[in-house]
């Protein structure tokens, strides 16, 4: 018998072991739901999968009686647009600040302490300010995501920039490069995969900001919907929505990982080595 730390399951077993906890959770849910519904068919707390399917069928494939929209897709689209816009802004600003403070000691001296302080401000506490300044429309929601995520990305990129071995910068100089060329040809290409990593890591908090902003002031969006139907205890809508948000988060993360692998093959090799 091998030591436990050396015991690695074969591939087929690994897939089975990975699926097992999901199956167990679903089974527990189904039996609990069945038990409650058997006692009280009106129970709303643990809806059956059929009920959830009906709710989603209604929201996704039948036009809303009030507006004529397909609410599920409308919500998804609005939320993804806000999330995407917020992340694009955050990634661009974060890259800019991080790169500049990391690459140029002069800017580091003047902006790095500011960046540290700003990153400690809780973004959620700024939400009222954003609502006051930008109104209750789209801008304040996108701004919350951007403001919440930018400092994280900026600090991460700054750190990564400083981690690039000094030798490479000296080498570039001995090849006659000036500061601009070093930034364009040596630093930015090496930081792009790290930017993708930073975006992947910060997507969790971006979703948090998005849903919070939508819950407080919005007329559509995934976060808006779950908080709206909470009033009617509509677990049959909330649970599929949460699952859908999770799936979206997973897909986005997966796509970013694939993008990084195909666009920056050298990065994957480096990761593999270290």
């Amino acid at each position: 018998m091998k030591r436990l730390i050396n015991f690695t399951p074969a591939r087929i077993w690994r897939i089975g072991l990975a699926l097992l906890p999901f199956a167990v959770i679903i089974l527990i849910y189904i039996s609990a739901s069945d038990a409650r519904l058997a006692e009280n068919p009106q129970d709303k707390l643990l809806p059956s999968f059929t009920q959830m399917g009906d709710a989603i069928q209604r929201l996704a494939f039948e036009p809303s009686k009030r507006s004529g929209d397909y609410l599920f897709w409308q919500d998804t689209l609005s939320s993804l647009r806000r999330l995407g816009l917020g992340m694009v802004i955050a990634a661009s600003l974060g890259m800019l600040f991080g790169l500049m403070t990391g690459a140029l000691p002069v800017l580091n001296a003047s902006f790095a302490p500011l960046l540290t302080v700003v990153s400690l401000v809780p973004p959620m506490a700024l939400l009222p300010v954003l609502f006051i300044v930008f109104g209750l429309g789209e801008v304040s929601k996108v701004a919350l995501i951007a403001i919440g995520v930018t400092p994280f990305i900026a600090r991460d990129i700054q750190k990564r920039t400083l981690e690039i071995p000094r030798e490479q910068l000296v080498k570039a100089q001995t090849l006659g490069a000036n500061s601009g060329q070093i930034i364009l040809r040596v630093l930015i290409p090496q930081l792009l995969p790290r930017l993708i990593d930073a975006v992947r890591l910060s997507l969790g908090s971006a979703w948090l900001f998005l849903i919070a902003a939508e819950a407080i002031a919005s007329t559509d969006g995934l976060g808006y919907r779950v908080f709206l139907v909470r009033r009617y205890l509509s677990m049959d809508v909330i649970l599929p929505y949460v699952a859908w948000i999770t799936l979206l988060a997973f897909i986005i993360d997966y796509l970013l990982a694939q993008l990084s692998r195909f666009a920056f093959p050298w990065h994957a090799q480096q990761e593999g080595k270290s």
């Binding site: 030798e167 490479q168 000296v170 080498k171 100089q173 001995t174 090849l175 006659g176 040596v186 920056f264």
Partner: peptide, 21 residues
């Protein structure tokens, strides 16, 4: 007092750019 193209250098490691072939 700054490196330039007159003086080439090879360090023990990290001399090459990992993102370029």
């Amino acid at each position: 007092s700054e490196p330039d193209a007159e003086r080439g250098v090879v360090f023990q490691q990290y001399s090459v750019f990992p993102h370029l072939n």
